[in-house]
């Protein structure tokens, strides 16, 4: 009883949120699990097929394409987004005139419904009339490269994802403010250059947070890249932006292969877990070494 009370004391602020999460996300996810091992089209009762769906995924070249695409997009967008967010956080953490406005601007894309900004990007990327085409043209790059070249299309997708850095900036600003000001004063008195301060002080102090954010962001990027892939590049060209969640969506809601879609989602979940595990391993190592 005492332990329960202690537990509740610690958790009673987060409990409602966790419950809601369990209800809205955990439960459906759990219910999707048996689906992954059955053949279900939504119309007939599910039929158990054991590992059939997973075997099918193993032999499905499009699954591997989609997985590769998702990982590539994440590999581009997660480090770039973190880097950009870090830069912005370091620029914006000090209270200055107009900083509030800039912070709000950095956060705005994350608060906009993704369908809205995806449509906006559709206009920006319009190969004849959009500003992006003009920009590419100025660098002597064909303005429709992202429509014809799978690699370019994935980079465009990663680029679009960069703008979802608002939450990262907010967290990093908070983390930066947590670093004692006296450490910066000391560095100044000791004559450390701006680069040394960044490398020896700011970066190592932010590292645990950065790694944690990288974990979260990598898992999230599987999902946030779904809307732009669906709206903007539509999975093309040459399946170059067919991302895993898009493939799951197509199988489930377009082709009515709910069982197969659930199996693919399960695979996606496993890959996400793996990525997080790898990063947590590094995080542990770093925090054991660091402060």
């Amino acid at each position: 009883m005492n332990r329960l009370r202690a537990f509740l004391h610690h958790w009673h602020w987060t409990l409602p949120g966790l419950l809601l999460l369990a209800l809205l996300l955990g439960l459906p996810a759990l219910m999707a699990l048996p689906l992954a091992f059955s053949d279900f089209d939504g119309l007939h009762p599910p039929r158990a097929v054991g590992l059939g769906n997973l075997a099918k995924a193993w032999n499905d070249p499009l699954f591997w394409t989609a997985l590769g695409n998702s990982l590539t997009v994440a590999a581009w967008s997660v480090p770039l987004r973190l880097l950009l967010a870090l830069g912005l956080a370091l620029l914006l953490h000090r209270p200055r005139r107009g900083v509030g406005l800039l912070r709000a601007a950095a956060l705005a894309p994350s608060l906009t419904p993704d369908i809205a900004w995806a449509l906006l990007w559709l206009w920006i990327l319009n190969p004849l009339y959009g500003p992006f085409a003009w920009l590419l043209g100025a660098f002597g790059i064909a303005p429709d490269i992202w429509l014809t070249d799978a690699v370019a299309a994935r980079r465009v997708l990663a680029l679009i994802g960069l703008w979802l850095l608002g939450e990262l900036v907010v967290v990093l600003i908070a983390a930066r403010k947590e670093i004692p000001a006296e450490l910066y004063d000391l560095s100044a008195v000791e004559g450390a250059s701006a680069f040394t301060v960044f490398r020896r002080l700011t970066l190592p102090m932010l590292l645990p947070v950065l790694l944690l954010l990288a974990c979260r962001d990598a898992a999230l990027s599987f999902q946030t890249s779904f809307t732009p892939a669906l709206i903007i590049t539509k999975g093309g060209p040459q399946f170059g932006t067919l991302l895993l969640p898009l493939y799951v969506y197509q199988n489930g809601f377009e082709y009515l292969r709910f069982g197969y879609a659930a199996a693919l989602a399960l695979a996606m979940f496993a890959v996400t877990l793996l990525m997080i595990a790898v990063q947590l391993f590094w995080l542990r190592r770093w925090t054991r070494l660091g402060g």
Binding site: L8, L15, L19, L23, M31, L43, H44, P45, P46
Partner: peptide, 24 residues
């Protein structure tokens, strides 16, 4: 709290059962 949690969970799990049973 736990009673509240149960109350929240119950209709949903029933709905889930119902869904599984009478599909299509």
């Amino acid at each position: 709290l736990s009673r509240a949690a149960l109350a929240l969970l119950l209709p949903l799990s029933l709905a889930a059962c119902g869904r599984g049973g009478s599909s299509g």
